[in-house]
Nucleic acid binder design. Structure first.
Lengths: 234, 234
DNA sequence: CAGTGGTCTAGACCACATA
DNA sequence: ATGTGGTCTAGACCACTGT
């Protein structure tokens, strides 16, 4: 009645529910049986069903409400999950050799946009580190980073001439929360000087700010060389 | 011993562990106590601790291995989670009025790139629907979509002249898996004709393919008007 | 109010990777 | 061989919310 010779466990409950959705036994908007009934039908404990349904709910395929019960999601709101690895990892995963070059390192007040995003005072000096990442010797991405010394005082002692700020931060200070933004820009002098290419090239940019608890760590803008694509799943 | 007046439950265990990480009691790479010990220390069941640690592990803050135990992640690999709402929702959430205009609807074999991504035969005709989304009457995004009739035969009967393919699909066929890709392009004739702007404008593009189980549903390329930003969290 | 999901518990067995 | 996380169970209480 349940499944053929499938492995037991919450995963198989998940698969069974998925099968009923894709098989159109349960349509978008339809209520599905409650946990207790499903558990009885499938011959397992309610907590096992709960685990499976919670998993599907996390993935946006089910909508659950106390007392209201569980329904097949009407509007499957997609979420693209994009890995943000270290640039070095990313380059090496593509089978290329990673290079790094420090362009600038200074302590100065950031543009207002950076300060407001991080929530620091506009006149508080931040550590500004600009660097270039290479793949097989060719420009790969321009990293423009602001680090908050109040949160990461040790950064002031780092030269960042060999080890990128990218990696140094990740080794020293795990973040708990981040905000990301992707946009396209037209290459101007600054980008061409670092990345090559010609004026007007369309480049994809990834801006990110990270926090540890309530304390801002860093704001970074990665500008990738022409033709770069950022991919994600689910 | 545990927490002040904090609410009990796995969330508070999660917070306590987070506190020890951010408070540098546990450094990146450090092993943390096993579930049984933590449960004893915090005065709760092991499964509660398990729930909390699994949550932190899902978020990439902990690394867990059977027998190896649990450690604070050395390289916090970030993942940006980007909501992909319906365009209409997205526009209305920004407090603007959504408009829709069908540009083209035909049945023909897709470019090879589309067929290989979806895994359909290169000579299998797909439903091609091109449309424009407006916000307060101004061009917002150009939608270029290929729908697989073998999976969604009902789509052949839809005119898509009032209701966007975007919404129609989501109402009729929940997907189980998707792949996304973001890139930047330089506006050419086609984009300018639909979105306005001037040649060479940098535009951000979102390509997405979705499946239901093993069956391909659709491939879509959304090209956003100049200045658009796509944002995500965590 | 009553029914649903959300969670906790105590105990158990197992898969797995490491020592 | 052994300790760890992964999971299942049966039962219980609670929080929320629709009726």
């Amino acid at each position: 009645m349940t499944r053929q010779g499938a492995p037991y466990g919450w995963q198989s409950v998940r698969e069974e529910v998925l099968r009923r959705i894709t098989g159109k036994a349960w349509l978008p908007g339809d209520p599905i049986p409650n946990e207790a009934d499903l558990a009885a039908e499938l011959g397992c404990a309610r907590s096992t069903v709960n685990r499976a349904l919670r998993s599907l709910s996390d993935d946006g395929l089910l909508e659950r409400r106390r007392k209201g019960g569980t329904r097949v999601a009407r509007h499957r709101v997609g979420t693209a999950t994009i890995r943000i690895p270290l640039i070095r990892q990313e380059v090496e995963e593509r089978g290329r050799r990673h290079g790094y070059r420090l362009i600038e390192r200074s302590l100065c007040p950031p543009p207002r946009k950076v300060a407001t995003t991080l929530g620091t005072a506009t006149d508080e000096p931040l550590l500004h580190v600009v660097s270039l990442h290479l793949a097989d010797g060719a420009p790969y991405a321009l990293e423009d980073r602001w680090i908050v010394p109040a949160t990461v005082p040790e950064a002031l002692d780092e030269p960042f001439d060999r080890l990128g700020a990218n990696e140094w931060l990740v080794l020293h200070l795990p973040f708990t929360h981040a905000e990301s933004e992707f946009l396209a820009i037209s290459a101007a002098e600054r980008e061409i000087a670092a990345l090559g290419g010609t004026p007007g090239d369309a480049l994809i940019v990834h801006r990110r700010a990270t926090w540890q608890g309530a304390r801002p760590i860093t704001f970074v803008e990665m500008t990738f060389a022409r033709g770069h694509r950022i991919s994600g799943k689910l």
